[in-house]
Amino acid sequence: MIPQQFIGSEAQTTYEQAKVVILPIPYEKTTTYRKGCQNGPEAIITASEQLEAYDLELEQEVCQQTGIFTTEAIASTKLNPDLAPEMMMEIVSNRVSELINDGKFVIALGGEHSITAAIVAAYQQQLSQPFTVIQIDAHGDMRHSYEGSIYNHACVMRRVLDMGLPTLPVGIRSICLEEAQLIKQQQIPVVWGRDIYQNSDWIDRAIALISTEKVFITIDLDGLDPSSMPGVGTPEPGGLNWYELIKFMRAVFTRHQVIGCDIMELAPTSDSVASEFTAAKLVYKLIAYAQLKVN
């Protein structure tokens, strides 16, 4: 159970009135290095109580313009450690479908990245038009299987590709041979981490690679550089900084129709709240871009 509301009393509203729904999914079964991402959703929501409601960039109190409602957590391995991946997929897909049918803009909080496949599957089932999945990440996550499971967090984007959806990985700086071969064979467009540092116009180049009007955004927090986001399970040097990420997010929201988002893989550290506070602020920026007109 996660009783707090995102950003606390600043955003109190009913489910019926809310435009944005925060969906905590504290599921963790396949993490392979530093564990703890099942604690991510609660840490983000707790940290959000320290956010200022006023957004300097948009010059508005976003939560006063947009009703935000935080639902009860689902698919929690904190409550059910033996929850199988197949059951998690069914629970998450069904719940996200309900929220879509109710007209909510969903921001899911993980939990491990494998959850994203279930969220994307729900959108694909509910929408008649194709959409692109934009993946902010340090890793390709395109293995067919890993450690004996096709539902491993290292396989999530392969499951999305299996759905026949276009993807745009951004910030990637670590892949295996299998993934390198798949990228070449399927001509998957990738914005590599080095591309971001070598090209000042990388955002325009990235946007040009999106082939659909609608997009879904999945953010593995290790897409950010570990200097600003140390609280992840598999950190990689050379990631995006805060302003690069939010500038890209604003461009995507401005030029495309974003149908939903998720933020995954926060594994809180014991000696600092920087990671969860940064993640909470990122959630708030996504809400701002989703619900307020940006020019």
Results as ranks from 00 to 15, higher is better:
residue 287 I to Y: 02
residue 36 G to F: 03
residue 47 A to N: 01
residue 85 P to L: 02
residue 122 A to F: 09
residue 205 R to G: 11
residue 182 L to G: 01
residue 199 N to S: 12
residue 4 Q to G: 12
residue 224 L to E: 00
residue 63 C to W: 13
residue 168 L to K: 12
residue 246 I to P: 10
residue 250 R to V: 03
residue 289 Y to N: 09
residue 86 E to N: 03
residue 70 T to Y: 02
residue 30 T to D: 09
residue 145 S to A: 06
residue 218 T to Y: 01
residue 284 Y to M: 03
residue 39 N to T: 06
residue 22 I to H: 05
residue 203 I to G: 04
residue 55 D to Q: 10
residue 181 Q to F: 05
residue 200 S to D: 13
residue 210 I to L: 06
residue 7 I to V: 10
residue 156 V to M: 07
residue 3 P to T: 12
residue 70 T to S: 05
residue 253 F to Q: 06
residue 281 K to C: 09
residue 22 I to E: 00
residue 171 G to Y: 02
residue 271 D to K: 14
residue 218 T to Q: 02
residue 147 E to S: 11
residue 211 S to W: 11
residue 91 I to D: 08
residue 3 P to N: 11
residue 181 Q to N: 08
residue 175 I to W: 00
residue 77 T to D: 02
residue 201 D to H: 10
residue 189 P to E: 05
residue 242 W to E: 03
residue 125 Q to I: 03
residue 291 Q to D: 10
residue 255 R to E: 07
residue 226 P to T: 04
residue 53 A to M: 08
residue 168 L to P: 06
residue 149 S to M: 02
residue 63 C to N: 15
residue 140 G to M: 03
residue 82 D to V: 07
residue 46 T to D: 11
residue 136 I to F: 00
residue 40 G to K: 00
residue 143 R to T: 02
residue 57 E to C: 13
residue 220 D to R: 04
residue 159 R to I: 02
